[in-house]
Design a protein around this nucleic acid. Structure first.
Lengths: 341, 341
DNA sequence: AAATCCAAGTTAAACGTTTTAACAACGCTG
DNA sequence: CAGCGTTGTTAAAACGTTTAACTTGGATTT
């Protein structure tokens, strides 16, 4: 039936131990035997059984990837890309990534993903914000865990985060360098750390360039962070009658909503008003005009997450580590040099 | 460390064999012993090791889910929902679903997902169209396979498909019942079986109601099937100057594009023209007006896929089976009774 | 020449299950 | 009371690996 280590051993005239040692690169095997074994492995297309290996090594070879159902089903494939990154990263160490969603309103009475309760994973990656009830419940299993794009309020953890502050600075500095001085900031849900940080970056860039922040230009009390909020925020801004030549939205959805409103009001983008977003979502390039934004390396975040969780599995000392991945400014057509009007 | 069957055996004063038999519901165990064992299992929170079990049963307990990268990263979470369905379905039989993407242009020289080459799955679910090169390569592994929303050109297979013909009929009949007679059909990519079938449904409904199809009303030569194609198709239709009071687009994206064009031309929807789409994508409910459409049970397709692949794994006779899942008409606000203009 | 060391392999136990065949205990039958 | 069937339980093999401990035979040291 299936080719086992025994078949390889027989074919190359050695014991199964030798085969195993060869496969693990043990130096005690003569290069001649090594060659013979490798040849047999090749010819038989031998694939070690993960099951048998896992049994003796007491490892499953699996890593769990958990996110809320909402996040997974988002039209914008943000977490999907992160997942894809983990899949890719897992190839190196021959792990498998098991994905499971949890209810967005996970409560004490909900079940954990099976791979956790059945101890079928060696480590865990938790992507995006998850309910506290989930965190509490999962903590009981003491699995090496890495958070991605989320950091729990309590305790010390390993996490992969993006450099929101720097992103906010990059976006703002880009506008400053284009000659803009009156730069609006649009946001909702300031309770969210990422958004708060982007705001911080905006502020800090202004100050570094000697521009004193004007609270009138900060529309930060939108309820949500979708297109509608962006649209509405611009309305608010225009109603105030305060002068501005550029705006930085805390994410692309708001930026796109903002552009819609501006265009409807007859403003030319970027000639009259420059717009910068954040996230680099799929549709940015297809906006009119294509949106300048801060790009987040989703794929890399997944790869880093796997690396980190693997590290934690190997040296199972709980060395908590935060990795901040860099972001990048993508200049498209929605920003232009300041022009006196 | 981890609780094993031995611990349960010791605690309940029986042999490990007995524990195993109890857990498998073997009737030869006295109900008294059974109770004792079950109690111990409960108290120790014993979870059988998938690895050990898999080793002796020669099953991995995993099912592979493969789709192209494009499909997985689509903004519209169609396949994502199907995947979620498989995840859910897999709970019953305690399988795990491993997801892997393949390059959209998979060629002979590309590698198969690791779980296939390493024989780490018992069966395979292939979602959406995949390249022939992939099919050829994967066929060599003789895995029980179920296709979802795709049926290979060659050979006999198991598959979960949606009832496109009936969907086309439902949509068209809905319009006919509203009193419409001049019903346009919009499509692109007629090479795609799903679209061809929807077209068939449209035709068949017309004929059943004694309406002879008017080729002038069929715009079926669009290159693609996106919003732009829908927009463009309506332009073509209007330029022809042919009279119509309703239109059925082969998918929601085209329907939405069509609505945009119609609205721009000053038509009122649904007062002057009724529009029906197909797919029930996320944004339908947020259109203006909300789009009437044919809904596809994505989640169920996933569940059915798991059921079928499990069936194939159990009785490993290659009983190929096609399951056609029913679709459903969702009436929203984009359709109304015919009104003479 | 005995003792030691080394290189290259091998033996065998262990991992945690499932399952078959064997077994013990008991009541029944003839 | 010998033999038989039934009922409930267990011993043991098997699944495919890894790895610590051991063997073997030749080279080197004392």
């Amino acid at each position: 039936m299936k080719v086992t280590i025994k078949d390889v051993a027989k074919k190359s005239g050695v014991s199964i131990a030798t085969v195993s040692l060869v496969l693990h690169g043990n130096p005690r095997i003569s290069s001649e035997t090594r060659k013979r074994v490798l040849k047999a492995v090749e010819e038989l297309d031998y694939q070690p059984s993960m099951l048998a290996r896992g049994l003796v090594m007491r490892q499953t070879g699996n890593i769990g990837f958990v996110l809320t159902e909402d996040h997974f089903l988002r039209t914008e494939p943000f977490y999907t890309r992160i997942f894809l990154g983990t899949e890719f990263g897992a190839r190196d160490s021959n792990h498998f990534v098991l994905l499971a969603t949890i209810p967005t309103d996970f409560s004490e009475s909900d079940f954990l993903p099976r791979f956790i309760t059945q101890k079928n994973v060696d480590g865990l990656i938790i992507a995006g914000k998850v309910p506290d009830a989930f965190l509490e419940k999962v903590a009981r299993y003491h699995l090496p865990t890495v958070f991605v794009d989320f950091y729990p309020a309590e305790g010390e953890h390993s996490a992969i985060l993006m450099d929101n502050i720097r992103g906010g600075m990059l976006a703002t500095e880009h506008l400053i360098q284009l000659g803009h001085r009156d730069i609006a900031f649009l946001a909702g849900d300031m309770a969210h750390p990422s958004i708060r940080e982007r705001y911080l970056g905006y502020h800090s860039a202004l100050q570094q360039h000697g521009i004193s922040p004007n609270p009138e230009l900060e529309i930060i009390d939108e309820k949500k962070t979708g297109k509608e909020s962006g649209y509405h925020a611009v309305c608010t801004l225009l109603n105030k009658g305060v002068k501005f030549s550029a705006l930085f939205a805390c994410n692309d959805a708001m930026a796109i909503g903002a552009m819609e409103c501006l265009k409807k009001q007859g403003f030319k983008i970027p000639e009259q008003i420059s717009v910068v977003g954040f996230d680099d979502i799929e549709s940015d390039a297809f906006q009119d005009p294509p949106l300048t934004t801060v790009s987040v390396p989703k794929y890399d975040m997944g790869i880093e997450a796997i690396k980190l969780v693997r590290e934690m599995i190997e040296q199972n000392l709980k060395k908590n580590k935060k990795i901040i991945v860099p972001v990048e400014l993508i200049v498209r057509k929605s920003t232009a040099a300041f022009a006196e009007s």
